[in-house]
Design a binder for these strands. Structure first.
Lengths: 148, 148
DNA sequence: AAGTGTGTCGATGCTACTATTACATATAAT
DNA sequence: ATTATATGTAATAGTAGCATCGACACACTT
């Protein structure tokens, strides 16, 4: 199934912003670090901005900054901002309505699928971009803020 | 994100087998109920059989049966049997190794992604095909086994 | 006024998934 | 034995979502 790398790259972007010294970063710089194209970055930034996680500044010396403290941005916020497909896809063509199983299977599965999704989301809600940034700093043996 | 319809259809298949009276069901019958093609069903059955969840019988009067009691088949077993893509896809092209963030972001995210995956899997491990079959029977107002 | 960076559109290529046809193989029924 | 039946797998084609790339209008800074 078509799976998106958006979540991983979005966390990457936000972590880079969190690790920096607060100066705006250009989409080109972020693209270099994430090894993708500036257009992809800008597409993600557009979603992150809509979600209130980042804000951008036009013009020379401009770029993107975090809209709030990294510790206040949960990975769940990022997940919801950039992922749009359902975690569990159901039948492409709806099952046979008149069948004993086909007519009820979706409703029967639904509570379990919901709980599974919540189980995942609860874990993503426990970790913030600040946590990831700290961990990156520890692994990379540098201190924040990092001036590029 | 990452899910095909395989999981939903596989649960459908197993539930249909669980609801029945134990007689083997043909891929054509299952395809009718799930509103898909017999080949898709057989492809799923091939995986389910490899995972030890079903067994098939060739020839006239043949078909597929559960290999063990429905109550002993966890949805997690089904999930693992038919899904092969990772829940979280990482960067399509690996991030910049020499960057402070790019070089460490994957390792920094990994524990969280693992916990999120476990959160989902734990929920799927709590429910069995037997539970789903009972719920389908309740919703459809019939009793098991159901003779077709 | 000139330079810079964002935001978005359209086109292209790629990959995963589903549907469908076809056929070889194995089993049951007669 | 012969025939009918059902699985299992391969090949093909069509579909959808995603990432890449080029281009450009718009906004802001200097």
């Amino acid at each position: 199934m078509p799976t998106s790398t958006r979540f991983a790259v979005a966390v990457h972007i936000l972590t880079a912003l969190a690790v920096g010294d607060g100066k705006p970063m250009r989409s080109e710089d972020l693209a270099y670090s994430a090894n993708t194209s500036p257009v992809v970055i800008r597409g993600l930034l557009s979603r992150l901005s809509d979600a209130g996680l980042t804000r951008s500044q036009l013009g020379a010396g401009g770029g993107t900054m975090l809209a709030r403290a990294a510790k206040k941005i949960k990975l769940l916020d990022v997940y919801e901002a950039v992922e749009d497909t359902e975690l569990f896809s159901l039948h492409r063509t709806p099952p046979c309505e008149s069948c004993a199983v086909g007519g009820n299977i979706l409703e029967a599965m639904q509570p379990t699928l919901m709980r599974a999704r919540k189980g995942l989301e609860n874990e993503l809600a426990k970790v913030t971009i600040g946590d990831i940034a700290s961990e990156v700093a520890r692994l990379g043996r540098f201190t924040m803020p990092l001036t590029w």
